[in-house]
């Protein structure tokens, strides 16, 4: 564990807590893409298959349980909670996210660390996470006024993987044979997808004006 990875995990945890705060307290999911939440639940379900077979540390297992529990409960909230589901605008959240799943699955079958079920599922989860934010970014472009919590949620979610890139650089230089092209390339693509959001997020923060993404 290094400071970049810990900061990354804490930032990821913070993004989940901000979203739970928004949904649980103001009972609203306005501006939140259910499709991105469903993709993230699938990411965690396919990445943490080894949660009961390979014990790495209490921290590792605890965080996996938090990410699994929160992602599935957020999906449940938006789909089934009587008040929250009312603030979900299905007509705006139209990204065909199933079109993301198939290519990621095919790529995982072709490019993986080992052709076993768990390794293919793990690679699938890495590829899927890289593109999981797309429905959310598309929805933000259509959302007139993005509320602060939603903006913070997306920012933290993008920042966590950027911190992970620093972690991979650190581990590359400090650990021998630490090379993982699958996570490195996917993590870079994932972070680059946030580039324009980060730009507009900082602009709105600097000029102290409402966050607005150009359509």
């Amino acid at each position: 564990m290094n400071i970049f990875r810990l900061a990354g995990d804490m930032t990821h945890l913070a993004s989940v807590l901000v979203l739970l705060l928004k949904i649980h307290t103001i009972k609203s999911c306005a501006g939140i893409s259910l499709k991105t939440q469903e993709l993230y639940a699938l990411v965690f379900a396919t990445r943490y298959l080894d949660i009961f077979t390979d014990f790495i540390s209490l921290y590792n297992t605890t965080m996996k349980l938090i990410f699994l529990g929160s992602s599935f409960s957020i999906v449940w909230y938006i789909r089934n909670h009587k008040i929250v589901s009312r603030s979900y605008d299905k007509s705006q959240d139209t990204f065909r996210h199933y079109f993301l799943i198939i290519p990621c699955l095919l790529l995982a079958l072709l490019v993986n660390e080992k052709f076993t079920f768990k390794e293919v599922m793990w690679a699938f989860s890495i590829y899927l996470e890289a593109v999981a934010i797309l429905p959310q970014l598309v929805l933000l472009q259509r959302t007139r006024n993005i509320d602060n919590l939603t903006g913070q949620y997306v920012f933290l979610l993008g920042a966590y993987r950027a911190l992970y890139i620093l972690n991979w650089i650190y581990r590359y230089f400090t650990e021998t044979h630490y090379v993982h092209w699958i996570t490195w390339v996917s993590g870079l693509v994932q972070t680059l997808l946030y580039a324009d959001f980060f730009y507009y997020y900082f602009e709105s923060w600097k000029n102290n004006k409402k966050l607005q993404l150009p359509a």
Binding site: R5, D9, D50, D54, W122, E175, T183
Partner: peptide, 10 residues
């Protein structure tokens, strides 16, 4: 050890 090294991240 090698296995865990490659999958010790979240």
């Amino acid at each position: 050890a090698k296995k865990q090294a490659s999958k010790d991240e979240l």
